[in-house]
């Protein structure tokens, strides 16, 4: 996924850390030709990537589903200005979740994104991932849409408690 996104022209990788994105984050930190941007809150990433687009650059926002809730009003920037946006969201409060704190936002993630005009694509099996990422890139940079790819816990595995 990392190599594919870089080949698509992605140069800004923004994230609030999550275990589900560990490999992507580590790859971005080791990549001298890309900007690896740790955020304090996910909504910064929505704005950051809008600025990247103003300057003709592409980026991706990596976050956990809990971070989707932090982005709600900032997505009005994306929708109103028709900024392309690619988010990859690792799910919590999903298949096999053992932490009850994660369920309210996990249940609301897809609805919140769709309410703010973001197209949601979901992956629950390893063979779904790359076709979905390729489709998302086409929708984002071909058509100018905002797309979130949700990586389900059936795919990622649930954290043990």
């Amino acid at each position: 996924m990392y190599d594919y996104l870089r080949a698509e022209g992605v140069t800004q990788i923004a994230y609030v850390p999550d275990a589900g994105h560990k490999v992507m984050i580590d790859r971005s930190l080791a990549d001298a030709d890309a900007h690896s941007i740790p955020l304090t809150t996910e909504e910064e990433g929505v704005a950051l990537l809008a600025g990247a687009d103003l300057g003709g650059a592409k980026g991706v926002l990596l976050m956990q589903s809990s971070g989707v809730g932090n982005c709600i009003n900032m997505l009005s920037l994306t929708a109103g200005s028709r900024f392309p946006l690619l988010c990859i969201v690792s799910m919590r409060g999903d298949f096999g979740e053992g932490n009850p704190w994660q369920f309210p936002m996990g249940r609301a993630t897809q609805a919140v994104l769709e309410a703010m005009g973001v197209v949601v694509l979901r992956c629950d099996a390893p063979e779904d991932v790359m076709p979905t990422i390729r489709a998302a890139c086409s929708m984002v940079w071909g058509s100018g849409e905002a797309v979130a790819v949700l990586l389900g816990q059936r795919l990622l595995g649930a954290k043990k408690f």
Binding site: T11, Q12, H35, I37, E43, E44, G45, V46, A47, L48, L49, A50, G51, A52, D53, L54, G55, G56, A57, G59, N73, M74, S76, L77, G80
Partner: peptide, 15 residues
């Protein structure tokens, strides 16, 4: 989109 400004400027500066 209150709160966007500084982060947008960062993305633009890096681009």
């Amino acid at each position: 989109a209150m709160g966007a400004g500084p982060s947008m400027a960062l993305g633009l500066a890096l681009a």
